[in-house]
Design a binder for these strands. Structure first.
Length: 450
DNA sequence: TCTGGGGTCCTAGGACCC
DNA sequence: TCTGGGGTCCTAGGACCC
């Protein structure tokens, strides 16, 4: 709360409509890369997905070179290197740590923070426009100064409009990173929404864009003017909500903080392999490792699961036969025990593997989650609850790093800095990984004073 | 040679029950 | 035995998000 807060102001502001504030980092992954490497500032930087597959983030200079998100790195690598582009493997450990710092700072400025993704959060403001503007500008300055990450802020009466405002802040340098939708409306009126393509509206993806365009809805303004009930009948209740939101009526509820350690409804761990995998044996090793990663997330959020699903597939790009399988095991008694869950993953896989297929991707999904605290079985029926091994593995991972100890292939050590992985042939490549300055003692940043 | 990972919600259809 | 309607639960698949 601001220092000069007093009761009269509260009374006054209670009559104002609460405004959603969306703070979103600019080119988050790319910005993280330059926090501890200032020589990257202003240069074209791209961050690649696992296995150094495709581009998932670009610095502003990289965007100006016309590099699109999702482009496979191998397709643009030569040209990019000629253009002086710096490529980095994704360093989620570093990004998660900087995200944490950024979120906790922002939570000091406005209430009701909802962490929506690794780089953005919603908050609420009950202040008037001028005051909100000042708070948001201060928030932005503080995050930039103390974490080194530039954020943009959009303010509006609904989440969907806050997204639009945020986009506006990013694309209009005059906004200085903060846009109040009410001010845009006052200045530009309907022209503002008319300038937003319908594809850029939150909740409208590629498929929906095509269908909407074919019915003459091309801009956010067209969508706002469409009949909500008709949109529901023709498309879905989701699009109806979007229309309402564009009209200024909040229709999207608060998601229960997925990232704040709270509940989620499923936990998924999947990877592309660095090279194709054939046969049950190797596949089962990989799925065992993923099952343990997923299980450790399950314990961290204090849940039990009662269904374990596994899946794997061959490359959809390879000519010839595409092969995919999935299988599941139900647990009679909900569990968070890594032995039970790893074994269940193996059971789900058994008998379903095409012995000739070259699988390039596999994963484990934990489903039917429930709160561990609230769940009790009858005495003598707790076969699936081992309260010792899981926590011991968690502690070993915390003290000595991931997978120093594990079940089956999960305990086999990798080489060098790939230590998050098993060192197996199929483990992912990350050849251009930056130091994990904030989470590893031996990778801390070095600063020279001259 | 080389194309990410982790989620959510909605809908339709089938099985089953009364 | 035959018939129909309504309800619930589950699952698979599609679409979307970052």
């Amino acid at each position: 709360m601001p220092e000069d807060f007093n009761q009269d102001q509260l009374y006054d502001h209670a009559r104002l409509t609460p405004q959603f504030v969306l703070a979103d980092a600019n080119s988050f992954f790319a910005s993280c890369e330059s926090v501890f490497n200032p020589s990257l500032a202003g240069r074209p930087v791209v961050v690649l997905s696992n296995n150094d597959g495709c581009v998932v983030a670009r610095s502003p200079a990289a965007k100006r070179l016309g590099i699109a998100n999702g482009t496979p790195w191998f397709k643009i690598r030569e040209q990019a290197e000629r253009d002086g582009v710096v490529a980095r493997s994704s360093n989620y450990e570093l990004y998660a740590s900087l995200s944490h710092r950024m979120m906790s700072i922002m939570a000091n400025f406005l209430p009701e923070q909802e962490v929506y993704s690794i780089d953005e959060c919603f908050m609420l403001s009950l202040w008037d426009g001028q005051r909100t503007q000042a708070i948001c500008a201060d928030l932005r300055e503080t995050v930039l100064r103390s974490v080194g990450i530039p954020v943009s802020v959009g303010v509006a009466p609904t989440k969907t409009l806050a997204k639009v405002a945020n986009h506006w802040a990013k694309n209009h340098p005059g906004a200085n990173g903060v846009t109040l939708w009410s001010q845009v409306l006052a200045q530009d009126g309907d022209r503002a929404l008319a300038s937003v393509p319908v594809a850029d509206v939150w909740g409208v993806g590629r498929r929906l864009t095509k269908k909407l365009e074919s019915t003459g809805i091309l801009t956010a303004l067209d969508l706002q003017r469409a009949d909500p009930t008709a949109m529901r009948r023709r498309f879905s209740v989701l699009l109806e909500r979007t229309v309402l939101e564009l009209r200024g009526t909040p229709a999207i509820e608060r998601e229960e903080d997925a990232n704040g350690g709270a509940r989620s409804q499923q936990i998924l761990c999947s990877r592309m392999f660095s090279k194709p995998v054939v046969g049950f044996g190797t596949l089962s090793q990989a799925l065992g490792v993923y099952a343990q990663k997923a299980c450790s997330r399950l314990r961290r959020q204090g849940s039990l699961c009662s269904r374990v699903r596994v899946f794997c597939s061959s490359s959809p790009y390879a000519p010839g036969q595409y092969s995919a399988m999935s299988g599941q095991t139900r647990l009679e008694d909900p569990s968070d025990d890594p032995v039970v869950i790893t074994r269940a993953a193996r059971t789900a896989l058994a008998g379903r593997v095409d012995p000739h297929a070259a699988y390039i991707r596999a994963g484990v999904v934990l489903e039917n989650l429930r709160d561990a605290k609230g769940y009790q079985t009858l005495d003598g029926l707790e076969a699936n609850r081992d309260r010792g091994l899981g926590p011991a593995l968690d502690e070993a991972a915390r003290r000595f790093g991931p997978f120093r100890v594990g079940i089956g292939f999960g305990g086999v050590r990798g080489k060098g800095r790939q230590d998050e992985d098993t060192g197996a042939e199929w483990a992912m490549n990350r050849r251009m990984l930056s130091p994990r300055c904030t989470t590893r003692w031996d990778e801390m940043a070095t600063v020279h004073a001259r």
